[in-house]
Design a binder for these strands. Structure first.
Lengths: 146, 146
DNA sequence: CGGGATCCTACGGGATACTG
DNA sequence: CAGTATCCCGTAGGATCCCG
């Protein structure tokens, strides 16, 4: 890890804690593969946004949910919700009334995933301008190089 | 948040910390949109896996990296690396020798994102069997219902 | 209201071949 | 070795219509 020489000590500490939290999965390579499969499933744009909305709002009906998650089509909302339900992240309660009323909320598992993702959200919020500057710099260089 | 009534207190505490960490982004709706765009960019399967590998391994050459990130095509590796470089997550060092030698490592920004994602990895490793059981249960019900 | 069923298209992404 | 360029296919995912 000599490559990390020019990071701050705080950053290195975080990296170490990061690395040390992973090993258990590496004992059996199949486990690692399964974890990656699971990550791939869950690290989906819509999954993350639905997860975030439900974690913030608590419990929502289908249409209400679609209003919070801007830009999602009803097809993707349904599809993603079904997958999340299958994975045990979400519970769907159907009230037998007309017009139908269906409410979605996170399970304990889903809630824990939500708080696990929290760090990513905070990172995004904190480093938004940082990323934008990096992009402008990169695009500027690319143009100059052509 | 009455919907959370049947969670453990620990889970509720986590949810509260979660929710309280988000608000700053909601002040200006445009910020929220930008954060979501950024999340969409970064919550990509390959981005996450490359990020993880570089956080663990420190610094790697192109081919070496492709060995760690199982299943990735060289096209996607190049593409994802370029995007990450553009976003300021990764630094690419080109050594002017033959054969070419190009090394990739995380920037401080990338490293921080890596540690932010750490929670998700831990969650995945911890709850793998939980998810699998939920899937079997769900699939069983689906079959019974048909 | 909350979806399911269809249709259709754009594009993600793999395989292969070529280059400095 | 580290890409770039080309071709090509599958499917993610939007639009639309319908139904209980």
């Amino acid at each position: 890890m000599r490559a990390l020489a020019n990071f701050t000590t705080a950053e290195i500490e975080r990296a170490k804690r990061y690395a040390s939290a992973i090993p258990p999965a590496d004992l059996d390579p199949r486990i690692g593969a399964l974890v990656n499969e699971l990550i791939g499933r869950v690290a989906d744009k819509w999954t993350m946004m639905i997860l975030e909305t439900l974690a913030e709002q608590g419990e929502l009906r289908f249409t209400r949910l679609s209003e919070f998650v801007k830009g999602i089509s009803q097809k993707m909302l349904t599809q993603t919700l079904r997958n999340m339900e299958r994975d045990g992240l979400v519970i769907c309660t159907v009230h037998p009334v007309v017009p139908p009323k269906v409410e979605y909320r996170l399970t304990g598992l889903g809630l824990r995933l939500g708080s696990a993702f929290c760090g990513v959200w905070v990172w995004a919020a904190e480093n938004l301008d940082h990323v934008e500057k990096a992009r402008q710099l990169f695009d500027g260089k690319a143009k100059a190089g052509s």
